[in-house]
Amino acid sequence: MQKLSDSLTNMAVVLTLIAVITGGILAYVNHMTEEPIANVEKQALEEGIKSVMNDPDVVVAQTIDTTMTLPGTDKESAFTIYSINNAEGEKAGVAVSSTTTAFGGDLQVLVGFDNEDNILGYSILKTTETPGLGAKADKWFQKGEKGDIIGKNPNDEAFKVSKDGGEIDAITASTITSRAFLLAVKRGYLAYKTACEPKGPVVSDTTGATKSTPEKETQEKDIKTPKSK
């Protein structure tokens, strides 16, 4: 077969053809994988919530997406707060997803609290940390491990790494990751308190997840952080 010459028509035809074919292939593959991807994400979240609530039968009663500026920073951060009911439809606590910057990027954790604000469990949702380091945090702070945080209240003075005068052992050689992790947990707790507490306990709604975005409310409540410096 003769190689096509470099005429303008040839080039235009070939480029258009390539664009159409690749676009078509990608649209098809995207269509095929759209559902599995959504399922995977949904499942990951459900499993995460079950594991951090330490109970396989919990149901998400309410989902609140909110952004707020917490004391100690001048940046707005996004939080997602899931109000959780147990199998009998009673409030079992909340799970909060919270993000901080750690050693090499964002660290996103999902923390479960019981009704007394004690930590039930946690799970690392996303980390751009050096693999191996961030991965360690997955186990390190679990029950019975060296940095056990289960059952503790993040509002305690001692909820810090031992280097900073707290009572939690940091991951060996990863103080920054450990600090970031504890900060993420604590910020999740603060966000949950700021967003939910004044309204009293969330009314249980077993019909499914309702979405609300109380952005305005949380901003007004957040008078503790003066914006001006």
């Binding site: 077969m1 003769q2 190689k3 096509l4 010459s5 470099d6 005429s7 040839n10 080039m11 070939v14 480029l15 390539i18 664009a19 690749t22 292939i25 990608l26 593959v29 995207n30 994988t33 991807i37 995977v40």
Partner: peptide, 28 residues
């Protein structure tokens, strides 16, 4: 044989990028 010499780089890049995206979606 159907790729004109002058545009071979963009054509190849488009081919490679297509497979990369397919891979990315399948892995996800």
């Amino acid at each position: 044989n159907i790729t004109p010499e002058k545009v071979h780089i963009p054509v190849y890049i488009a081919v490679i990028a297509t497979f990369v995206t397919v891979l990315q979606l399948i892995l996800k």
